[in-house]
Structure formats: structure tokens, C-alpha cells
Nucleic acid binder design. Structure first.
Length: 203
DNA sequence: TGCTGGATTCACT
DNA sequence: GTGAATCCAGCAC
């Protein structure tokens, strides 16, 4: 198991990192419970010239960590209820980030099901960004955490997602971003049962 | 100090 | 298919 190193996160192409993250394994150790899940859906945000990004032309206390060096965790609350999990990328001050939208649980499944109040493992468990953080027990407390040296990190299990297995599509929920909302910066693993169910209609 | 709206989810019909 | 839940950041005053 190779834990991803700083160099993986600090590359300057956030879109490339988003693609590379597909098939990688997100690991969390919260309250002594280890949970692992394969990343099957990501979304890229470019802080400098992407109106969909929180960090676009406004540096605030909330988005401060996006301006830090790649490899940091950016969590924030959406609709007052849901925690969304982002991975900061690129060099310091550039504010790029990747949103993890869906995962496939592979270890600690009992804990995942318990957190999600489910009895069996199915798409429902982790096919949305808010569900991912809940399933993995990621909360706002993890804001600013360093993935390189902490209880939350990403492993490379040698799974290589073929270019042909990646579905590109435009991002959702960011209509306010105008033309930037049309960028094909959302990436999914083709055929994986845990990706968001709307992918057929949105392509 | 107060108002507004959002990178959503889930229960219910 | 639809609507309610729910809270904080950002901005206006």
C-alpha cells in the first residue's frame, strides 16, 4: 500500500489530479475505527479562474486552507446539514481543490453502514458528496488536516483506471458560475455501481 | 447585527 | 416527483 506523497497533490494540473484520484483509496481512522473506500467520482475546482470555486477571487477565513499547499483537507458545511470533503491541490496560494463526490466502501463496511443507518451495502450508502463524508466519518473538525501525515490519507492500491473507463461530464449545482459550470471537470469510473445515479441523463 | 442562499439529502406521496 | 430540514459564510446596513 503506497500512501500518496506530497508530490501527488502539488502538481499544477487539478484536472489531472482529479482523474488520478479515481481508483485510489481514501482511508480514515476516526475514534480508532479504520475505514477504507475507493474513490469513484471526483470534481475539479480551479481557484484562480473558475467561478464555481469558493476561492474564486475571494480569500476568506473559510477558504483559507484552499490557498495552502496541496494535500490539505478542505471540509465545509453545505445547506447547513451536509459536510463536503475536498482535497486541496497545487502549490501554495493557488487555491485549487478536488471534491470527492462518491466512494465505494471496501473496508470497515460495518462502521459505514452504521453511520449511514443502512443494513446493506448499496449505492445509497455513498453516492453523494454529503454521504461520502458521513460514511467516512469526516467532519468539519478535519478542516485543514494534512493528508500526508495524519489519520486521514489516500492510498494507491495499484488500481489503474483506463482512460476509456473515465466518464467526463459537466458539474452540477454550480449554475451560478455561468460558463464555468459547463466545464467537463467531473470524473467518474464507468460502470461502477457507486457513482451518482444521474450520470446517464447529464451526459 | 441581521438577512440571504447554497458544490444536498431524505422522507413522504 | 416534491418539498422540508437546517446553519454558516458573506455581505449589506
Amino acid at each position: 500500500m503506497n500512501k500518496l506523497k506530497r508530490e501527488f497533490y502539488t502538481r499544477n494540473d487539478v484536472v489531472e489530479i482529479s482523474r488520478d484520484l479515481l481508483g485510489k483509496v481514501l482511508v480514515t481512522k476516526v475514534n480508532g475505527i479504520i475505514t477504507k473506500a475507493k474513490i469513484v467520482e471526483t470534481e475539479a475546482y480551479c481557484g484562480r479562474n473558475d467561478r464555481a470555486a469558493h476561492s474564486f477571487q475571494k480569500r476568506t477565513p473559510r477558504t483559507e486552507v484552499m490557498y495552502d499547499t496541496g494535500g490539505k483537507v478542505y471540509t465545509y458545511l453545505c445547506y447547513g446539514i451536509h459536510t463536503l470533503f475536498n482535497i486541496v491541490t497545487n502549490e501554495k496560494d493557488l487555491a485549487d481543490a478536488v471534491l470527492v463526490r462518491a466512494v465505494e466502501p471496501i473496508e470497515g463496511i460495518d462502521a459505514v453502514l452504521k453511520r449511514r443507518n443502512q443494513s446493506t451495502l448499496k449505492r445509497m450508502v455513498s453516492d453523494g458528496p454529503g454521504k461520502v463524508s458521513k460514511a467516512m466519518d469526516i467532519s468539519l473538525d478535519h478542516y485543514g488536516l494534512d493528508l500526508v501525515d495524519n489519520d486521514i490519507f489516500i492510498e494507491d492500491h495499484g488500481v489503474d483506471i483506463n482512460e476509456k473507463e473515465i466518464i467526463e461530464s459537466h458539474r452540477v449545482g454550480v449554475d451560478y458560475a455561468g460558463e464555468d459550470a459547463l466545464r467537463n471537470w467531473r470524473f467518474r469510473v464507468k460502470g461502477n455501481p457507486f457513482i451518482g445515479k444521474d450520470y446517464v441523463a447529464k451526459i
